[in-house]
């Protein structure tokens, strides 16, 4: 094989890999993971068999978080809600830093026979609103927002808000 042909072959292979993986990834995404998680309502409607692995996503319901430490490993119980339905979740291990009541989470695991969700992994899903701490405090103090109960009010009410204390 001439070096030129060889080079063509290699380049062709590189293209094929690039294009092939692009297509394969799109197809993978399109078939099964277009939706990354199921909401509690969808889970109740689908009623997945115990032991079948899936991702459950929603908000950590206020007042449902309880942690017990057994043999050095913390086990946390909390409910994940979408505002209409809720599912109790059990997780043993260290929760992500952002975990709190009212926080969005995605839990990976399966249902148990006792209708609770046993999570192997818990990921935090944070919001798309960015503001300094003192603006958040000002909104809380004014009674306009409590992060435990959902996203902040319309951005136009706070994204140029003047606060007394200086940040940074």
């Amino acid at each position: 094989m001439t070096p030129r042909k060889k080079r063509r072959l290699y380049l062709f292979a590189a293209c094929a890999i690039g294009v092939g993986s692009a297509t394969a990834l799109s197809l993978t995404a399109l078939s099964s993971t277009l939706t990354y998680f199921l909401s509690p309502r969808e889970v109740l409607a689908k009623n997945p068999a115990p032991g079948m692995s899936f991702r459950l996503g929603g908000i950590v319901q206020v007042g449902t978080v309880a942690t017990t430490v057994v043999g050095g490993t913390p086990t946390t119980h909390f409910d994940v809600t979408d505002g209409q339905a809720s599912i109790p979740v059990t997780f043993s291990g260290v929760l992500p830093d952002l975990f709190r009541e009212g926080q969005g989470v995605v839990a990976i695991g399966s249902m148990t026979s006792s209708n609770t969700f046993s999570a192997d992994e818990v990921l935090a899903k944070h919001g798309a609103s960015y503001m300094p701490k003192d603006v958040e405090q000002a909104l809380q103090n004014a009674g306009k927002w409590n992060p435990k109960f959902g996203p902040p009010p319309a951005a136009s009410t706070w994204n140029t808000l003047q606060v007394k204390s200086s940040s940074s």
């Binding site: 590189a14 293209c15 690039g18 294009v19 993986s21 692009a22 990834l25 799109s26 993978t28 995404a29 993971t33 277009l34 939706t35 990354y36 992500p96 830093d97 952002l98 992994e121 818990v122 990921l123 935090a124 899903k125 944070h126």
Partner: peptide
């Protein structure tokens, strides 16, 4: 540090990875 995972196969991350492969292709 925020989610608890470097990578997940959700639609946003996957479609940006596809963009990268399109550039390479």
């Amino acid at each position: 540090p925020m989610w608890g995972a470097y990578w997940v196969w959700d639609a946003r991350l996957t479609s940006v990875l596809v963009l990268f492969f399109l550039y390479l292709g």
